[in-house]
Design a protein around this nucleic acid. Sequence first.
DNA 1: GAAGATACCAAGCAAGCGCTTGGTTTGTAA
DNA 2: TTACAAACCAAGCGCTTGCTTGGTATCTTC
Lengths: 206, 206
Amino acid sequence: MNQDAILKSLIADNLVSDPSGARGRLLREAAGLFRDKGYERTTVRDLAAAVGIQSGSLFHHFRTKEEILKAVMVETIRLNTALMQSAVDAAESNADKLRALIRAELESINGQTGEAMAVLVFEWRSLSESSQEEVLKLRDIYEALWLEVLEALRTEDVLAADPFVVRRMLTGALSWTVTWFRPDGGLSLDDLTSQVMGMMGMKQFL
Amino acid sequence: MNQDAILKSLIADNLVSDPSGARGRLLREAAGLFRDKGYERTTVRDLAAAVGIQSGSLFHHFRTKEEILKAVMVETIRLNTALMQSAVDAAESNADKLRALIRAELESINGQTGEAMAVLVFEWRSLSESSQEEVLKLRDIYEALWLEVLEALRTEDVLAADPFVVRRMLTGALSWTVTWFRPDGGLSLDDLTSQVMGMMGMKQFL
DNA sequence: GAAGATACCAAGCAAGCGCTTGGTTTGTAA
DNA sequence: TTACAAACCAAGCGCTTGCTTGGTATCTTC
């Protein structure tokens, strides 16, 4: 199943909003504004203007401003979990699965969903505690995918460090690419993936 | 020169505020509040209350709220650059220097200056562009330290990936520890340093 | 002990914020 | 055509925000 098919199936199940619909368009614009200006500095008037309606009309679609932030995060995690799952399933060896996970995460951070992923990293504290818990549960599914692969590699002795620690280091390292990586800068996402594998001492799997 | 002596020398040169003085105390409290609540959600009334004065009185010490954020960042970079420099100077081999840098950065992120370092990472966008430029210049000095060591290791063929990319990955990975590492969790900073070295395939230098 | 700087308070202003309200337009289905 | 809901507008309320103002203690220096 390719990326487009996965997205369509999620839309059909009402798990993510259709980007061409009103709600989907707003979430897209919101992700962009939240990343560029930060959640707090983005006003409901900014959000409304971005989709061409009055600020009050926003509250017909969402009850609060925070609900918009939460929706951005939830839908992004849902989509990326599905993409990750399919990337892992398609790979054979554990080293290949790791490579696929790294590649997929880099794609999600620096590709189409990049703005929303940046929001997920940098605007976390703007979520209320109850919303944080909710989002955390979704993240756990996502994280389980990684740990399974990393633990297998540890068992194979390909990995010298603790899988939990490695995953957390990778989370930081890959998230951070959003602050410096530019696809037009002579380094492709595939190159970057190889660099990460190489940095991890997995030269033999480049 | 030990850490305390470095701090004192910076204070003497007026590059860092004395933590026992009024300005230093405010910056310390500000770093904590900015990390916990974010810069935008922290009001000048919060800041004033934290040091026991009226909100208006803040503006006797700083002209704007943003100036407080900038001061937190600038002084933190100054201190940590000095600490890094001394850590590198004390090490012999390049692998040892790398280890010292990693250990020092983990210390700065998870130790005394941890709150301020978290602010540096997560509140970057709240700085005006002109302030960002100013802070960036200070960061360059700091980064040059890392690159020198990483480039030497690349030449020695101990490192398989590009030094620039590695440094950026490490920046992300180490910064991210602030979100999950707890010194009381059975893993010490030394353990963590070893895990990072191990993850980089530098098993032989553990 | 006078003088001047430094540190602070009490009060409040102007602007911007999230969100509400009452009413109008647009879409949908019988 | 009618009936009803969904989508939207225009206006603005109540509150919080960063910051200012005019005045008063407190410290320092000769």
